[in-house]
């Protein structure tokens, strides 16, 4: 059994780090994992994506055509990856950065104003953690506590003072998704 997740957006949005955090958390949970970055001639503002595969058995290909889940941070990523999510898969969209409608209706999707939520915590640079919190709640492949532990273990020293804000961002992303689920049930 394996779960493939693609994170995609602009360079500088914390895509690679968010992906590595998933990989660390999966590894520390005793699972197999691969983290495969796009590594073209990338730069800040250019496109960046990474593929994370989490499995309970030996992982073959580190990339897949049709992932189980996709988290997109910009319009080019949305255009590229929305059609590729497997049926019944998960799509998380940062709605702060795009007003595009989600067209697939046989996948589990969520539009989350990740930048606004991040800014309310203190920095829009926490948007990657807000998105990750929402993803991990919609696709519970590893517990959020494992992500928090991975953050504590692997956050770069220069950002350690932001650890609590990162925790909060993860939680707010998670709560946003939970509230959404309750809303859907009420309807």
């Amino acid at each position: 059994m394996q779960t493939e997740i693609i994170l995609s957006g602009f360079g500088g949005q914390g895509i690679m780090f968010a992906g590595q955090l998933l990989a660390y958390a999966a590894m520390d949970s005793g699972l197999e994992v691969t983290w495969m970055p796009s590594y073209g001639p990338e730069m800040r503002g250019g496109t960046a994506n990474c593929t994370i595969i989490i499995a309970d058995e030996e992982i073959g290909s580190p990339t897949v055509l049709k992932p189980k889940a996709v988290m997109v941070f910009n319009i080019p990523s949305m255009i590229r990856y929305e059609p590729l999510v497997v049926s019944g898969g998960v799509l998380i969209v940062n709605s702060s950065l795009m007003d595009r409608e989600i067209t697939r209706n046989e996948i589990k999707s969520l539009k989350i104003p990740a930048n606004e939520i991040a800014e309310s915590i203190g920095s829009k640079r926490l948007a990657n953690m807000v998105m990750l919190g929402a993803l991990i709640t919609k696709l519970p492949v590893i517990p959020i506590e494992s992500l928090e532990q991975a953050l504590d273990d692997h956050i770069p020293d220069r950002h350690r003072h932001l650890l609590d804000s990162n925790f909060q961002a993860l939680r707010e992303g998670s709560v946003f998704e939970e509230l959404k689920l309750i809303e859907e049930t009420d309807n």
């Binding site: 197999e32 983290w35 970055p37």
Partner: peptide, 10 residues
């Protein structure tokens, strides 16, 4: 190859 060089695994 580039994949083996660039990917991260436990």
């Amino acid at each position: 190859d580039g994949n083996i060089g660039q990917m991260m695994e436990p």
